[in-house]
Nucleic acid binder design. Structure first.
Length: 349
DNA sequence: TAGGATGATTCATT
DNA sequence: AATGAATCATCCTA
C-alpha cells in the first residue's frame, strides 16, 4: 500500500539526483571500497575465512606479526557484527533494487499501452536504476569502511591502553624472575614460553622484565617480601616435584597449591621439608627473622632453589651470577648489598 | 582524589 | 637488537 507510493517517491528522487555523478561502471572508488572490505574480511567469504582475514588484518594493523591474539576476540566479534549488518543491508538493497526495477518495468509496460516505449528506453531506465542503487550501495560500503576504521582505531587505542596483567600472569612472571634472580634475563624461548603461559605477547614479557629488573634494582628492599614469597613458592613446588618424583606414593600432600591465608605456617612446613631435601644450609625465613641483611637471603634462596626447582623449561643464559645488578649502586635500601664475598649465590656451575 | 603500582614508550648505550 | 633508564599514561586503592 503505502510502500508503492514511497517507492515512487524514491524513484523521483533518484531520478532527479541523477546527473551528479556520471556513469562510470568500473568506478575506481567503489573498487577501492570493495578491496578494503575484502581486506578487512567484511565482504569476503563467509564465516570460515572471515576470522582468518580479520586476524590477518589485525596483525597487519598491529605492525608486528608476533602480536598475540588474546584480545582479538573482541575485535573479531565487533567485526563480525559489522559484517553481518553489511551483508543484511546489502541484501536488502539488492532486493529493493530488483523489486524497484520490476515495479518500474511494470509501470513502463502499462504505459506502453498508451504510448510507444522503445526497448532502449527501458534499458536506459533500468541502467539508471541500477546505477542509483549501486551508488547507494557505495554509501553502504563507505559507511561500513568507516565503521571498520573506527573499530580498528578503537581497538588499537584499547591496545595502547594499559591494563594490568591478571594475577596468574604476574605470578608466573614473578616466579620466573625470582627463581632466576641471579640472572633474570629470559631467553627468547623462555620469553615465548612465559608469554604463552601468561597469555601476553613476547614483547610484553620483555617489557615486564625490563621494568621489573629496573624497579627491583632501584629498591630491593621493597621487593624483599615478594622475593621471599616467591622463593618459598618455588621451593614448595620443587619440594613437591621431588617428593612426587622420589617417593611417588605419599598421598599426603594436601596443601601444595593453596595460596591461602595461612601460607606462613605452611611455608614453615615446607621449609623443613626443603631443608631435609636440600641437605641443609637453606637459610630461609628472612621474613620471619627480622632482618638485617635480608637482602641476600632472597638471592641466596632463589639461587639455591634454582637448581632445586630445576625448571626444565628455562635455562639461564649467563652464568655470571649477580652481575646484573652491581653496575650501579643498589642503594636506597637500608643495608648496602655490597659483599659479594661469601654469597655468590648462583651456584649454577 | 592523591599517590603508588604498573604496563608501555622513548631514547641512549652497548 | 637487547637492555637500562627515564618518563608517560593509566589503573587501583586508601
Amino acid at each position: 500500500m503505502s510502500s508503492g507510493g514511497k517507492r515512487e517517491e524514491g524513484l523521483g528522487r533518484v531520478l532527479s539526483i541523477r546527473g551528479v555523478q556520471e556513469e562510470d561502471p568500473p568506478d575506481p572508488q567503489i573498487m577501492r571500497l570493495d578491496n578494503m572490505l575484502l581486506a578487512e574480511g567484511v565482504s569476503g567469504p563467509e564465516k570460515g575465512g572471515g576470522s582468518a582475514a580479520a586476524a590477518a588484518a589485525a596483525a597487519a594493523a598491529g605492525g608486528s606479526p608476533t602480536d598475540s591474539s588474546i584480545e582479538h576476540s573482541d575485535y573479531r566479534a565487533k567485526l563480525a557484527q559489522i559484517r553481518q549488518i553489511y551483508h543484511s543491508e546489502l541484501e536488502k538493497y539488492e532486493q529493493a533494487c530488483s523489486e524497484f526495477t520490476n515495479h518500474v518495468m511494470n509501470l513502463l509496460r502499462e504505459q506502453s499501452r498508451t504510448r510507444p516505449i522503445s526497448p532502449k528506453e527501458i534499458e536506459r531506465m533500468v541502467a539508471i536504476i541500477h546505477r542509483k542503487f549501486s551508488s547507494i550501495q557505495m554509501q553502504l560500503k563507505q559507511s561500513t569502511c568507516e565503521a571498520v576504521m573506527i573499530l580498528r582505531s578503537r581497538f588499537l587505542d584499547a591496545r595502547r591502553k594499559r591494563r594490568n596483567f591478571n594475577k596468574q600472569a604476574t605470578e608466573v612472571l614473578n616466579e620466573y624472575f625470582y627463581s632466576h634472580l641471579s640472572n633474570p634475563y629470559p631467553s627468547e624461548e623462555a620469553k615465548e614460553e612465559l608469554a604463552k603461559k601468561c597469555g601476553i605477547t613476547v614483547s610484553q614479557v620483555s617489557n615486564w622484565f625490563g621494568n621489573k629488573r629496573i624497579r627491583y634494582k632501584k629498591n630491593i628492599g621493597k621487593f624483599q617480601e615478594e622475593a621471599n614469597l616467591y622463593a618459598v613458592k618455588t621451593a614448595v613446588d620443587a619440594a613437591n616435584v621431588s617428593a612426587q618424583a622420589s617417593q611417588a606414593n605419599s598421598p599426603a600432600t594436601p596443601n601444595s597449591g593453596s595460596p591461602g591465608s595461612f601460607t606462613l605456617s605452611h611455608s614453615g612446613d615446607s621449609y623443613l621439608g626443603l631443608r631435609s631435601l636440600n641437605g641443609e644450609g637453606l637459610n630461609i625465613a628472612p621474613s620471619l627473622q627480622p632482618q638485617v641483611d635480608t637482602l641476600h637471603p632472597a638471592t641466596h634462596l632463589t639461587a639455591g632453589y634454582e637448581e632445586l626447582s630445576g625448571s626444565a623449561l628455562y635455562t639461564p643464559h649467563r652464568l655470571d651470577a649477580n652481575s646484573w645488578q652491581d653496575t650501579t649502586n643498589t642503594s636506597s635500601v637500608t643495608s648496602p648489598p655490597g659483599p659479594p664475598s661469601s654469597d655468590h649465590s648462583d651456584t649454577s656451575n
